[in-house]
Design a protein around this nucleic acid. Structure first.
Length: 805
DNA sequence: AAGTAAATTTTTTTT
DNA sequence: AAATTTACTT
């Protein structure tokens, strides 16, 4: 029974509760992955469950891969008749649909193509154009998001349309596009990411046979990161566990950070009511971080009202204090981080370091600073390999070989490399296709038919060019079809690169950039060769893999320095973490400032970021930040103010926000004390960078109530409380005390619903614009707004009559 | 039809 | 500031 020997009692209980529904509430760093992997190994080795009867579902390929490896190493030396299926939600759905989508009788064939976000947006753009709409008024990206959100709620275009209230033109337009979009995807035999889930769920719902088949196959199901599941994923799991209820879900409501993707936290909160016989295990011991880091994370999350109470503890020592740095601007911030990294690396190279930021756009300055100091780093996100233009081009050729009706893929490569097929010819082709209700591929075949050419207004030269393209694709189709014979996946990939003239046109360019592209294509061939070696699966699977592989999956766990967003860091851990750009509008993001629930999600994201740290945490922010090429004065993040200030070391040169915040709290205390004594003119508290001026006794008292952890006025005098901290008020206490006045560290300078920089607004005369700067206060607020086509305008907020757009 | 210059947009977070 | 899209040449 040595599988269990490394586990604590709760973990062990979670592993051994194999039958029936089980909810594991696993705090950050509580050994969640260890429990899942040991559980799988335990099922196989101790319970004699056939591996292929086990299904584990994760969100990313990276998580799935890691789990696979760890299970394998736990079972090392054992001969297994099969392997457990450890898969992402999306790959699982693809697997289900490739087998049985034809049973849906919707017209989809099992050779369907997967459209990524980019492809979907292109289809939507075309729909908007064909409906005669203005794509400035109806932005493809927004429509796509609306459709995706609807799909993830489980609505199809009919349900979406039926829910529109009378007079809601915007939604009515989206509904029209929605419908057209779905029709076009069907014509192209294509499914978008959301459809993969929708169709799989629909298939399980409508086909009892299929449902039965998978219920019999998957007798034990595990779901990781359950707090991030949405309605569709919940439905999928429900159908799969219909017969037996050996369902084990693992999650942490404090780490739910995908609400914007319709993740529904209720799935985890209401697990017990959905499965009344459910057993619940709490994993509360943290093995990852120092007490100091846990205290910091705890202090942040304590400001959220909506959460399950959970108390993480650790046997680890207090550890080093948190380091804080205030930079003049983003460049200085990046230089500080780079030089600190260098310092750490000089001492020890074994401590992996992460730089975590809110948005990918922040990465550049850190990359530059690290490069200047010749520090090697790894960056996750941004441009992933499979998103490179040349890779997507070649994949498009491969997709066409499998499914020539894929219009998007066809449009992508019809003139890449240049074949003399220009915009005019493509317009004519699309018009002809539309007139005949046919796909572009069929239209090309029609145009170039020798005996009965389709009559299309087109120059002979254009027709000939299309003929050339048709030949190229037909050769590829034959090669792909022959795959079962002797051609391997890599052979076909090479054909798509060479036989199409793609490589030659790059060679002819003879530039460094073209050479880099050729190298990327070589890497693609290598990926295909590897694929051939370790898998029996064909081209179809290879393309599916490319479509479902994301940035996150290219994380190298052995890299010394890793740059990534806080989102991507979920599930990872690093001895040293730099959490950067802690400014209002950056983190929390400006788009999340207006809604309380969005702000709470930002706070959970900050919690996730902080709890990645094992030994050391740095927090940094800049006083000036450049956005869209314009420099703004930025304010420290409200999350900084929520940290336990007594645990922080200030590394900033000169007077920083932190030193103000600290001395301010003693000043405030004095002011409050004198106010309470009834003194006529209490010393005025100065601006503490929270944007709020505490110039009345009431305001000062409110400050302390809100701050929650500040010293009571009587104990004022600058005595630093010794660590550990006294018990804090809970958010609920605070809410009661504040008389439901809202959030603790609320700011007056930037009230949540106001027009802050980064917000889009609508002006009667100038139309839509972006707020660049906000100055002044009260009635004198001046806004600098950039209106496309008009330029920058300075407006008085009071008179401008701006509406949020 | 292809290349260049000018205008416009971009920043959440992701399978 | 950088990347992408559009408009204008040749």
């Amino acid at each position: 029974m040595d599988l269990l020997s490394t586990l604590n009692p709760q973990q062990s209980e979670a592993v051994q509760a194999t039958d029936g529904p089980l909810l594991i509430l696993a705090g950050a760093g509580s050994g969640k992955t260890r429990v899942i992997t040991v559980r799988i190994a335990y099922l196989i080795a101790e319970k004699g469950i056939a591996p292929h009867n086990i299904l584990a579902v994760t969100f990313t390929n990276k998580a799935a891969g890691e789990m696979r490896e760890r299970v394998e190493s736990l079972l090392r030396g054992q001969k297994l008749p099969s392997a457990p299926l450890i898969s992402t939600f999306h790959s699982l759905c693809v697997r289900i649909l490739r087998a049985d989508i034809e049973k849906l009788e919707e017209g989809y064939k099992r050779s369907f193509t997967i459209y990524d976000t980019d492809d979907s947006t292109k289809v939507i753009k075309a729909c908007i154009k064909d409906l005669g709409l203005d794509d400035k008024q109806t932005q493809p990206r927004n429509v796509r998001n609306a459709i995706s959100a609807a799909k993830n709620r489980g609505e199809d275009h009919e349900m979406f349309a039926s829910k529109i209230e009378y007079g809601d033109e915007k939604k009515a337009t989206i509904a029209k596009i929605f419908r057209m979009y779905d029709e076009r995807l069907l014509t192209a035999n294509a499914l978008d990411f959301d459809d993969l889930l929708i169709k799989a769920v629909r298939l399980l719902r409508t086909s009892p046979d299929t449902r039965e088949k998978y219920n019999d196959r998957f007798k034990y199901i595990l779901v990781d990161e359950y707090q991030d599941t949405n309605a569709l994923q919940f439905a999928l799991i429900s159908y799969l566990t219909e017969k037996q209820q050996n369902i084990c879900v693992v999650g942490d409501d404090a780490q739910s950070i995908y609400g914007f993707r319709q993740a529904d936290i209720r799935n985890i909160l209401e697990f017990e009511s959905h499965y009344p016989t459910a057993k619940v295990v709490l994993l509360e011991q943290n093995y990852r971080s120092t007490q100091t880091i846990l205290d910091a994370a705890d202090a942040i999350i304590a400001n959220n009202v909506n959460q399950k109470k959970k108390k993480l503890w650790t046997a680890n020592a207090g550890g080093e204090r948190i380091s804080y740095y205030q930079a003049y601007d983003g460049d200085t911030e990046a230089r500080f981080v780079a030089s600190k990294i260098e310092e750490h690396q000089r001492r020890s190279l074994s401590d992996r370091i992460a730089v975590l930021y809110r948005t990918n756009a922040q990465s550049r300055q850190f990359e530059e600073a690290l490069r200047r100091m010749r520090i090697e780093y790894n960056i996750v996100g941004g441009f992933s390999f499979y998103e490179r233009a040349e890779v997507k081009d070649v994949i498009a050729y491969l997709k066409l070989a499998m499914n020539p009706f894929d219009d998007i893929a066809l449009l992508r490569v019809v003139n890449t490399p240049a074949r003399g097929i220009g915009k005019t010819s493509i317009d004519a082709l699309q018009a002809a296709a539309k007139a005949n209700g046919a796909s572009l591929w069929m239209t090309i075949r029609g145009i170039t038919d020798k005996e009965f050419p389709l009559d299309v207004a087109m120059t002979p030269r254009a027709k000939q060019a299309f003929g050339g393209f048709k030949d190229v694709i037909e050769i590829l189709i034959r090669k792909a079809a022959n795959e079962t014979g002797d051609a391997s996946v890599s052979d076909i990939v090479i054909a798509a690169i060479e036989d199409t003239g793609y490589a030659n046109s790059l060679r002819a360019e003879n530039t460094d950039e073209a050479a880099a592209r050729l190298e990327n294509l070589e890497e693609l061939v290598n990926a295909a060769v590897d694929y051939d070696k370790q898998s029996e699966n064909g081209l179809r699977d290879f393309i599916d893999h490319a479509a479902l592989t994301s940035d996150t999956d290219r994380y190298d766990s052995s890299a010394g320095v890793t740059l990534m967003t806080a989102h991507m860091a979920k599930g990872l851990e690093f001895p040293i973490v730099f959490l950067v750009g802690l400014e209002d509008g950056v983190f929390p993001h400006s788009r999340s400032l207006s809604e309380e629930k969005d702000l709470e999600e930002e706070r959970r994201l900050a919690y996730v970021a902080i709890t990645r740290a094992e030994k050391m945490l740095y927090v940094t922010h800049a006083m000036h930040r450049r956005t869209y090429g314009v420099e703004f004065a930025s304010e420290p993040s409200q999350f900084l103010n929520e940290l336990p200030l007594e645990l922080i070391d200030d590394l900033s040169p000169g007077a920083s926000w932190l030193s103000y915040a600290r001395s301010a709290s003693t000043l405030q205390a004095k002011a409050a004390a004198s106010a309470l004594r009834g003194e006529a003119d209490p010393p005025k508290a100065r601006n503490v960078y929270t944007g709020k001026t505490y110039d009345s006794a009431d305001a000062v008292n409110e400050f302390f109530k809100n701050k929650g952890r500040a010293e009571p006025p009587a104990s004022a005098g600058g005595v630093q409380r010794s660590y550990p901290a006294a018990p804090r008020e809970t958010p609920l206490d605070r809410l009661r005390a504040a008389g439901s006045q809202g959030r603790p560290t609320q700011k007056v300078a930037m009230p949540p619903n106001s027009l802050v920089p980064g917000t889009y607004v609508r002006h009667d005369k100038y139309g839509r614009g972006l707020i660049l700067r906000r100055e002044g206060s009260g009635d004198n607020v001046k806004l600098t707004v950039s209106f496309p086509g008009v330029g920058q305008k300075k407006l008085i907020e009071k008179f401008a009559n701006l509406e949020k757009d």
